[in-house]
Structure formats: structure tokens, C-alpha cells
Design a binder for these strands. Structure first.
Lengths: 232, 232
DNA sequence: GGTTGACTCGTACGTCGTACGATGCGATCA
DNA sequence: TGATCGCATCGTACGACGTACGAGTCAACC
């Protein structure tokens, strides 16, 4: 009943990896696998957004029947979880050389985090409702370790981690949700100018249109880091 | 075709507000209205969560047919938008007396914001995908005005607003998503202790269990405010 | 040859959002 | 008084969804 999942198919790919599976290759599609499902789900989410992912469409893209997916994943929720976590993999600092000090490391990690999510805007709107996958936990772990090494006391560690995490999450989600619909944005600003007697200040600052998102992100992050570790 | 919406029903309630509508009252349910629909949607969302809100269930609660709702709202998306915005109404500082200085005002506004959303945890997971309603804009406007009055230069205003907004959003969404499922949380921490060689630091700090959310929120907010207006 | 277990998929059920058109009903006009 | 008209309600129906169920295929082993 629940005796399926990854164990099964990974065994299969070991068995058939080297031996006489030329027949498999000659078919139009490679065999289903959890990895292929997740990768295709990410493609579909990138192309069509959260509402565009359905089991039938996903199966179509994979060249299989809809019900075949359920051998490899438990349900649609799991597809979301896996797609989200797969997108949040952290490959570590590519060029560790250019980074000096713990503060540089933290900034790099958090900016990479933000960039990863903005590359797949659906991830930002998905994350608030999903469980913590291994890749997210790995990122949290690295963040804690770096802060801990930097001398943040254990008592303050959780405050520091959550402050930084919260900040990154908020900035990313806000940015991504505005990215999703430029027209929405313009419409909102237009609604604003129509009601400029109601919202004079944000209308004057063109808050919704002219903001320098990246600049605001790193400035705010700096302030936070100043406060969290005033020593350095 | 599109000639319905609020104008129609508000005219109706004006007409029937005083006159001979005792018959309406004697019926088991008051007449449908946009306000009643939104209020009931909030109830339903509070009780059943985001997935629990369907047009049929909503209509059941209102004692009407499902299709009747569509006279007052355009579609289900609009119900979400209206419910979200209605929950984010800002009633202003209830006791302005106790609040000293712009900084106190800002903290009060942001804490009220957070509290409003945590009172309805679904709002946090909904917001990333929705448009900016009038109540959200009003909050942004008040925030800008306060900061502006506090002497933040126009050039820095957007940075300040977005830094604060992002921080509050992130903290609230994170907190709310953990609140939604304590069991998920415990399961995650359990998964962690099982893999404590993978995630030693966050396992040791009991990050997912023991965090002082409220304390972390206000400490991080203080740091941010320190940085944004170092003058005061 | 028979059995087993991994894997695929067609069919079917219940639920969803909502298009469409019929209906009821108070107000207005003839 | 009856005819007409706008607002408001709702029954029916359609297509799409997630997925339960069980029958099917095929390679590997006894």
C-alpha cells in the first residue's frame, strides 16, 4: 500500500543502469522516476505558475498516464514539496575566495537564497504553506553555523537566525509577488493616483513603481547585521 | 453582464433600509450582501483554512444557493481578496496617549499589523499571491507618513518602508505557517534529531521548538529602526 | 511454466468553479 | 389594472480536477 516511493525506483535504476536496457532508450520517453517528475514539475511551474500544475498536465509532459505518477509520489502536495525543495538547493559559495569574513559569508548566503527563489517566483508564494525540506534545513544549518562561528552567543542565536530568515523571506515574497504581475502593479499605482487624496505620501514617493528592490534589500540587511553583531 | 457589483446592492440597502421590509426580516436569513459574504468567508477561513473555503460551502453558511453569490462578487478570487483586505483593517492607535514619539508609533503600527494577521493565520499564506487592497495601502500610507514626519529623507523613504514591510511580512508568514501545524513542526524537529549529524547546530539550539517568536520579532525590529534612523 | 513484484494506466467517482437561462418580485408606467 | 423592467436568486449542467481501484505488462526468479 505505502510500499513504494523512492526505494523501489532507485533499486530499479541500479538494476537496469548498465545491463540490457537499450530497449528503454529506444522508446520515445525515458522511464518515469521521482527525479524526472520533480524536474518536469519545476519546468511546468516556471511556465504556467502554481495553478498551472495539475497531475494530468504533468503526466502529459512526461509522456505517461496521470495515475502512473502516483507510484513515485504520494500525492500532489508531495510534488509541490519536492519541487520547492529542489529549487532551494544550495550549492555553497562558488568562489569562496572572493568572500572575506563571516559577514560576507552571511550576505552571500542570503543573497543566493533570495536569488534562488526569485528565479522561480512561484516558490515564494508556495513556501508559506509547506513543510521544511532538507535543502531549507541545510541552509538554516549553514546560517547558524556561520553565525555561531562569528561569535554570536547561543542565547542570541535563534533571534539572529529568525531575524535574518524573516527578513529574507519577506523581501523575497514581496518582490516575487510584485514580479508575478506587472500589470497588477501598474493597476494598483493607477488606482492610487486616482485616489491621491487618500494616499498622498506613497503616491508621491512612487513606492510601487520606482523602488530599488535590490538596494533596499541589501541596505536593510546591513542594518540588521549591524544590530545583530555590533561588535564587528 | 458586468453591471452588478457593489453599486447595485448598496442602492438596494438604501432603498430598503427604512421602508417596508419586515418581510425580509421574518425570513430565516437576512438578504445577501457583499459585506455578509465577506464576513462569512472570514468565518469559514478561520474555521476550515484556505482549502476549506468553497463557493458551495460559503453559500451553505449563508443559507443561499451557490450561484447567488456571483451576483455580489465576480469570482472566488475576489472573495479571497475581499476577505484578506477586510482582516487587515487598521483601526488606528486605540490609545494614542500611551505612545510617545514616532518610533513608538511605528512599532505600534507594525505590531498591530502582525497581530491582525496572526489572528487569521490563513491571511499570511494568502497575501503573497494577492493584490494590494485599500486597507493594506492605507497601512502603507500611514507608515510612510509617520516615517516622513520623523525626518526620513524622501530618498530613503522607500528603502525604509520596504525594509520594515518586508521584515513584518517575513516574520508573520513564518510564524503563521508554523502555527498552522504544530504537528508538522514537531515532525520536522524529530526528523532533525534523527539526522543530528546533518544539522547539529540547529538541532542543538532547538531552533524549531524553543524560539521566542515575539521577542525575536521586536528585537529585530529595533535593530532595523536603529539602522534606518540612526539620528534618534 | 508459474509466480512474484515493480511499474503503468484506463475507468470512474466525488468535488470544484462557474456559464447559462429560468424564475420571482417590487417598482414604474400604460 | 395589467404590462414591463431591473434586481436578485437559484437549479442544472459542463469541463477540469485529485485520486481510489483494479486490471494490465514485463523482467526476474523458482
Amino acid at each position: 500500500m505505502a510500499a513504494k516511493r523512492s526505494g523501489a525506483q532507485s533499486k530499479r535504476s541500479q538494476r537496469t543502469g548498465v545491463s540490457p536496457q537499450a530497449a528503454q532508450e529506444s522508446r520515445s520517453e525515458p522511464p518515469l522516476s521521482r527525479e524526472r517528475i520533480v524536474a518536469t514539475a519545476v519546468e511546468l511551474l516556471d511556465a504556467e505558475g502554481v495553478d498551472g500544475l495539475t497531475m494530468r498536465r504533468l503526466a502529459d509532459r512526461l509522456g505517461s498516464g496521470a495515475m502512473s505518477l502516483y507510484w513515485h509520489v504520494g500525492n500532489k502536495e508531495e510534488v509541490f514539496d519536492l519541487a520547492l525543495d529542489s529549487v532551494l538547493e544550495y550549492r555553497g559559495p562558488q568562489q569562496m575566495a572572493g568572500i572575506q569574513g563571516w559577514r560576507g559569508e552571511v550576505v552571500h548566503m542570503l543573497e543566493d537564497w533570495r536569488a534562488s527563489m526569485l528565479r522561480h517566483p512561484w516558490s515564494a508564494s508556495l513556501l508559506p504553506r509547506r513543510a521544511l525540506g532538507p535543502n531549507i534545513l541545510r541552509r538554516l544549518e549553514m546560517l547558524s553555523k556561520t553565525l555561531s562561528r562569528a561569535g554570536v552567543a547561543d542565547a542570541d542565536l535563534n533571534v539572529a537566525i529568525w531575524s535574518l530568515w524573516n527578513y529574507v523571506m519577506g523581501a523575497t515574497i514581496t518582490r516575487a509577488s510584485f514580479d508575478l504581475s506587472d500589470d497588477e502593479m501598474v493597476a494598483a499605482q493607477h488606482r492610487l493616483t486616482g485616489l491621491s487624496e487618500c494616499y498622498p505620501t506613497i503616491e508621491r514617493s512612487r513606492l510601487l513603481l520606482d523602488s530599488d528592490w535590490d538596494g533596499a534589500f541589501s541596505k536593510g540587511l546591513d542594518f540588521l547585521l549591524d544590530g545583530l553583531a555590533p561588535g564587528q
